[in-house]
Design a protein around this nucleic acid. Structure first.
Ligand code: ATP
Length: 910
DNA sequence: CCTCTCCCCGTTTTT
DNA sequence: CGGGGAGAGG
């Protein structure tokens, strides 16, 4: 998995299949405790008995131009022996347990290619489960290089959630689920829950606690009945009472969702599970199942895995117990062992060579993780150089800390002779809100950045408004959406009127929307006397028109949105609400529209591919039969596919942008890598987080730090503030206890880039690394037409027809966030000194003018590969009438940074 | 029915 | 310090 384009293509050892010898072990893997423990309860490694001769007769699909060349299969190069064994292993079940940076993800990717190219498995019979959509996209991009876009497009690839959603849209009727269900996000769920809790447990102040509890049950595929069963016999009366309450809320919650044809995230899995129970034959088409990041699967995902491979029993899982960081949402590391038990004959493969990090980084990380006493030690070494010491130091406060980070980045970029770019850096924090202080500093330092964690694009009010309209049009039973938009813009239908409508809907057993329709048609509805029927009629007319548009199979979703915002005078509404904010909000709407246009365009591509597909090969046997004898009329509605995609993306799915520093939470950094990483805010209140209770949680926090540290390739900084503001106040903190083992400002005792904390200068070894990496990037530019390296899955040049998978391929659905955070006083953001290197200057074919021809300024900037200025600048640009075509950097530099409020409040120590 | 203001609450991590 | 809920006033 890769975090940046930089990481995407990496200098690789000249020798392939490097023979590993223990003598290579260096630094980290202190050989003393290790050797024994692994084999205890584990099958001996089964060496694949494939004698690998590149059978010349094994040709890949002739239609795929990237087939086996004379020199052998490219996908099998650049693998060490252990990786090679894992990739080519013929054992039906393969379990790969290995530490960070050891190439687990690379193995999955290559194995998929191997299955297709060497073993003639049809791509559509391969299921690949990834942890995020982004991981799926990046993997898709890599696989594409080996087997070509056509084959890649046929793979079944995505997160558990995305895969289930897709199956449910198609076969949901088998378990009485309509295919137009809405996927509720967390806010929707909360809104629901609030009302239910109000009715059931009025004095409860935290409805979300219920959601949380319910989610944990669902993660184990359990229902309200299980809540009661879970109460131990001798439980105190209040505990029983609590369980009853929970069960009650749980039941109502599910009923409500069901009644309105809504599924929450967990439901995707729960119903997915039901679907597999009802249709075990689904696994017939799943000849090979591969799951990445298995240590973070929960019980129901484990079950789904076993159900998917029920028929053919071919399963490859990959994981690292040391990187399990999602127990808090019911992930269960022991799923790894469960697979071992289920497949006793599985090949256990350990990858022990780390290719990512320097020895110094690995040593430090190893020290941290070794403090976990219950951990099963495992081998991990690297042939990479020792590199620079890890820099671990406290700072006066969060502001100073952030400035330090900025200074480091600036210094490195400035002295990097153009070889070091912003995309090489990541700043990682424990909690989302900590990104705020960082953002302020970055804006002031004019360093382009993107933020992961925090307010997401699809959670913004204006976006949710528009989406709610669309959802309502797609699924009139979607009550939360109805409630959201019925009075947006204000139609004089407030809480009381809505309440009446809901009551009437409940009484008549129809949807709120139908009630509204009746009222609009002047029909009488029991219980409702005074209501603004005229306004209601306008509203209904809009929705009806939307439905009509959506029903056209060839509608461009962008057109639907365009109609919607004009019919509702949404822009005027935004202006009336808050003139200041209106501009950026409106731009966000435009960005959504733009995204929709791209989505429609990619659907068109897919359609074409499909047709070719049908012509080309009609010997499709077992699978898709039941599609024909059932009414699946509406599965192909562009609007629905758009909404589905939108519901499943998260902000980690943003395409990487080489001109920007990544600011992210530790969790969201899982599986990614950057040349330079800062773990920031590592004080005792954050790591372990002060809310963590119990040893198990503390250990998870430690692993989180470990994951963060092991994201770094060349330089790692771990810093903490000595004072931090909390609730407006200012409190002293201390360095995270996890860091005691890395005592001193630098660890280990080796050369350091920093003698003081002021400004770093790139030294020879570092420069060499970056130069090599850049060279490698240029040589291995993803494709000759020049899509930007790392722009994962971005709709490429018009010529590149991509058989996109409409449900799981979501490359273009995370628009550039226009308005990261409203209250930043400081403006301006520009590429830091040093400029861009060859890699970032690769020509990039602009996105084809899609459907409606809507192109926002941001989109233009983005496709031009230019750094995208943050919201405020763009707003300014609009105001001055210079939309779009201007060079962002010039524009930004013209903006004089104002002194930020953050500057004034440094509190002196003590 | 809408909007403004005041006050209280609480800060993990996310598909 | 910030979001959201409650309550008052237009
Ligand atoms: N045999 C190899 N030769 C050269 N580079 C390699 C090799 N195997 C992996 N790498 C590189 O090492 C880095 C880490 O690989 P990868 O992301 O697959 O590791 P991982 O085990 O999935 O890590 P994590 O557990 O942290 O997600 C990548 O940059 C990858 O290109």
């Amino acid at each position: 998995m890769i975090g940046s384009a930089a990481a995407n293509v990496k200098p690789e050892p000249a020798t392939n299949h490097t023979v590993m010898t223990k003598s290579h072990q260096s630094g980290v893997a202190t050989a003393k405790q290790e050797p024994v423990e692994q084999k205890s309860d584990i099958k001996p490694d089964i060496k694949p008995d494939v004698k690998f001769d590149m059978k010349p007769d094994l040709k890949p699909d002739v239609r795929d131009e990237s087939g086996a060349p004379e020199g052998g299969f490219p996908h099998l190069q650049s693998l060490n022996d252990a990786q090679f064994g894992a990739v080519t292993c013929d054992n039906p079940a393969v379990i790969i347990l290995a530490g960070p940076g050891s190439g687990k993800t690379r193995v999955i990717t290559s194995r998929v290619a191997d299955l297709v190219l060497r073993r003639d498995v049809r791509p559509e019979n391969i299921v690949v489960v990834t942890f995020t959509n982004k991981a799926a996209n990046e993997m898709r991009e890599r696989i594409q290089k080996a087997i070509g876009p056509y084959m890649t497009g046929r793979l079944q690839m995505g997160t558990f959630h995305a895969l289930c959603a897709k199956l449910l849209r198609k076969h949901g009727y088998r378990i009485e689920l309509k295919s137009n269900f809405t996927i509720a996000d967390r806010q929707d769920s909360e809104a629901y829950m609030k009302r239910i809790v109000k009715a059931v447990d009025p004095k409860c102040t935290k409805p979300t606690n219920y959601l949380w509890d319910i989610s944990k049950f669902k993660a184990r595929n359990q229902g309200p009945a299980d809540v009661l069963n879970a109460v131990s016999p001798g439980a105190a009366p209040w505990e029983v009472r609590k369980a009853q309450l929970l069960a009650d809320v749980f039941t109502r919650y599910q009923d409500e969702l069901k009644a309105h044809n809504i599924l929450d995230f967990d439901d995707l899995l729960v119903y997915g599970h039901q679907l597999f129970m009802a249709m075990p034959e689904l696994s017939d088409g799943m000849h090979e199942v591969l799951v990445d990041e298995f240590q973070d699967t929960n019980a129901i995902q484990y079950d789904l895995t076993t159900m998917m491979c029920a028929k053919h029993q071919h399963l490859t899982i990959v994981g690292d117990p040391d990187q399990s960081i999602y127990a808090w949402r019911a992930a269960d590391v022991t799923n790894l062992h469960k697979v071992q038990k289920l497949f006793p004959a599985a090949s256990m493969i350990h990858l022990e060579e780390n290719y990512r990090s320097t020895q110094a980084i690995l040593q430090a990380a190893h020290r941290v993780i070794s403090q976990d006493k219950k951990r099963i030690a495992k081998q991990l070494y690297t042939n990479n150089p020792m590199g620079h010491a890890v820099f671990a130091k406290g700072h006066l406060n969060s502001q100073r800390e952030a400035e330090f980070v900025c200074n480091q980045i600036r210094g490195l970029v400035a002295t990097g002779q153009g070889q070091i770019i912003n995309g090489d850096f990541a700043v990682l924090v424990r909690s989302g809100y900590l990104t705020r202080a960082l953002e302020e500093a970055f804006v002031r330092a004019k360093i382009p950045h993107r933020i992961i964690g925090g307010m997401r694009f699809y959670e913004r009010a204006e976006i949710k408004d528009v989406l709610a309209y669309l959802r309502l049009a797609d699924n009139p039973h979607d009550r939360p959406s109805f409630e959201r938009v019925i009075n947006v813009p204000a139609r004089g239908i407030g809480d009381t009127s809505v309440g009446h409508i809901i009551d009437a809907a409940n009484a008549l057993q129809i949807s709120c929307y139908d009630v509204a329709k009746k009222l609009a048609n002047k029909e009488t509805v029991p219980g409702i006397k005074r209501i603004s029927r005229v306004k209601l009629a306008e509203f209904v007319a809009v929705i009806e028109k939307l439905r009509e548009m959506a029903a056209q199979p060839d509608t461009n979703v962008a057109d639907i949105i365009a109609y919607l915002v004009s019919a509702t005078k949404y822009e005027a509404y935004l202006k009336a609400k808050d003139a200041k904010e209106a501009t950026t909000r409106w731009e966000n709407v435009q960005e959504l529209l733009n995204t929709a246009a791209q989505h429609s365009a990619s659907l068109d591509d897919k359609e074409e591919e499909k047709n070719e597909d049908d012509d080309a090969m009609d010997e499709d046997e077992d699978e898709d039969d039941d599609r024909r004898d059932k009414p699946t009329v509406d599965t192909n509605v562009p609007l629905r596919s758009f909404l589905n995609s939108v519901s499943l993306v998260s902000d980690i799915d943003q395409e990487t942008d080489q001109s920007k520093v990544t600011i992210s939470t530790l969790h969201a950094a899982k599986g990614l890598e950057w040349p330079v990483v800062f773990v920031v805010g590592a004080d005792a209140s954050q790591l372990p987080h002060s809310l963590s209770t119990g040893p198990a949680q503390i250990e998870e926090e430690r692993r989180l730090l470990y994951v963060g540290m092991t994201r770094a390739e060349r330089l790692l900084y771990v810093t903490w503030p000595e004072r931090r503001t909390r609730y407006g106040g200012d409190e002293a903190t201390i360095r995270s206890p996890f860091l005691a083992c890395i005592d001193g400002a630098t660890f280990p005792k080796t050369k350091t880039l920093l003698l003081t904390t002021t400004s770093p200068t790139v030294d020879k070894s570092l420069l060499e690394f970056f130069t090599k990496m850049r060279q490698h990037q240029v040589e291995h530019a993803p494709n000759p037409t020049g899509s930007q390296p790392g722009a994962a899955g971005t709709p490429a040049a018009p010529t590149a027809k991509r058989p996109l998978d409409l449900d799981t391929d979501l490359p273009d659905l995370v628009p550039v966030l226009k308005k990261p955070r409203p209250p930043l006083a400081v403006q301006g953001s520009a590429p830091a000194a040093g400029g861009f290197t060859a890699a970032s200057q690769l020509p990039r074919t602009p996105t084809p003018p899609s459907g409606g021809g809507f192109t926002s300024a941001a989109a233009l900037l983005r496709t031009a590969g230019a750094p995208v200025a943050p919201a405020k600048d763009r707003r300014k640009k609009k105001a001055t009438g210079a939309a779009g075509a201007v060079n962002a950097a010039d524009q930004v530099l013209a903006t004089k940074p104002k002194r930020g409020s953050a500057g004034r409040k440094y509190v002196s120590k003590k």
